[in-house]
Design a protein around this nucleic acid. Structure first.
Lengths: 238, 238
DNA sequence: AACTGCCGAATTGTATACACTTCGTAAATT
DNA sequence: AATTTACGAAGTGTATACAATTCGGCAGTT
């Protein structure tokens, strides 16, 4: 048990904290709002914080620029992008279009057995989340099971669309500071039931190979979230 | 005249080939197909080719990964992304949706005087390009004036939409290896006239603040290109 | 002959030193 | 007192040395 080789047996998950890991940590910190909009990210400071040299930090920063989370000015450095509220709303509109296209493509191209299994499983999870919500439902607890299953469902459709570009676009639209978007997950239990029903309809449309119908349903499904966001903004903005 | 300082007197246009310049050159080379799909880009070789060290080269490569032109595998390096033909077609569909949204947003938000001037100017250029095409028209010569004005028009609309995310998405869709797409610019002169007319209609819809109409017109306008691509593919694929 | 294990070349990953640019600050000149 | 200039700190830009990893091939073994 105490063999030296044994100690290094499973370093695959933590031990090689390669540069990519730094990008992950920074991304999480930014999306969680730990760095405010416009905050400057200093290479030297980050190096010390992470206990590595500037080189991997630079790599991580450049990666995050590519993900549109940071902005870069030559000789000035990297700063957290400031999103106007209108841009966040636009992101949801763009996302609705892109996910609609994903659903359409999935319906056109058909589902592989693996895709179908994925979607069925997440639909079952969603049904489970909703009945659970109806019973206990301390509101807080509801979100996680639903959100997780919801994300699985959408991801499965992206895979089924089989178009990396479309997936990339959706990812781009999703990578928006959640400081505001957190608030809009204020679904009441009855609304939740509607959302789950929509998922089922989308699934059926894809299974029965109705591309335009699948696209329309997915678009409307995403629009619900966008409208909720606009509503919240109108309230807090007044 | 032979002073050492004089030799370095005007290095402003070429001499500070900062890391970003390397990214530009590489991007151009990739889009021009000088590196085939899947080609590996070696840091050391590129360093020697550009006459700089590995550091700026790495930066450029990471930037291009962010632009989805390269793929990166840890400990293996960077390689040119291989695009399936279906992905290229999807890119044009996604682009049509995104540019449609841009036109819609421009119509919703209205044009600034600068935007309006930009659009009018490029429309005039387009009109000029078409009459020029009708006269001389050695096919080759037509493309450049039209393409340039066409690009100006579309860029102006992106600016008018005033949504960086939408602009980014369109850029993502446009950054696809042109090896294939070059062929589809096989517009005949009469088709060109139709394209220009479409531009005018889009402009009018935006000016008269008809968002859905502007969106529909722009979408259809882009679909022309997508359909042309599909046609070429069907021909060469058979 | 097939397989296993090991070595070494090639390439990426990281660290660090140094040059250059930017910007604030304070001193000096007008 | 206002403006300008010079200096210096802070931070990015680049180069280079070295460590770590991957993978091909060769040798040895079975």
């Amino acid at each position: 048990m105490a063999s030296g080789r044994m100690d290094l047996a499973e370093p695959l998950d933590v031990a090689p904290p390669r540069g990519g890991a730094i990008a992950d940590k920074l991304r999480g910190a930014i999306l969680d709002g730990k760095y405010g909009p416009g905050a400057r990210l200093n290479e030297v400071h980050l190096s010390r914080d992470f206990g590595v040299s500037r080189t991997p930090v630079r790599g991580a920063l450049q990666t995050l620029v590519g993900e549109a989370l940071l902005e870069y000015t030559p000789n000035k450095g990297y700063s957290v992008r400031a999103f106007a509220v209108s841009e966040i709303v636009d992101a949801f509109e763009m996302r609705a279009l892109a996910e609609g296209l994903a659903a359409r493509l999935a319906a056109e191209r058909g589902l592989t057995p693996a895709n179908e299994a994925d979607l069925s499983a997440s639909l079952a999870e969603l049904d489970g989340a909703i009945t659970f919500a109806a019973s206990a439902a301390p509101a807080e607890a509801v979100r996680n099971p639903y959100s997780a299953a919801n994300e699985r469902f959408h991801t499965a459709i992206h895979r089924a669309a089989d178009s990396r570009l479309v997936t990339d676009v959706i990812a781009l639209c999703s990578r928006v500071p959640l400081t505001l978007t957190r608030h809009i997950i204020d679904f009441k239990t009855e609304d939740l039931k509607d959302r789950v029903e929509e998922h089922h309809q989308i699934y059926d449309a894809i299974l029965s190979r109705q591309p335009r119908e699948a696209e329309r349903l997915m678009y409307e499904h995403d629009q619900v979230v966008r409208r909720a966001l606009v509503r919240v903004l109108a309230k807090s903005g007044s």
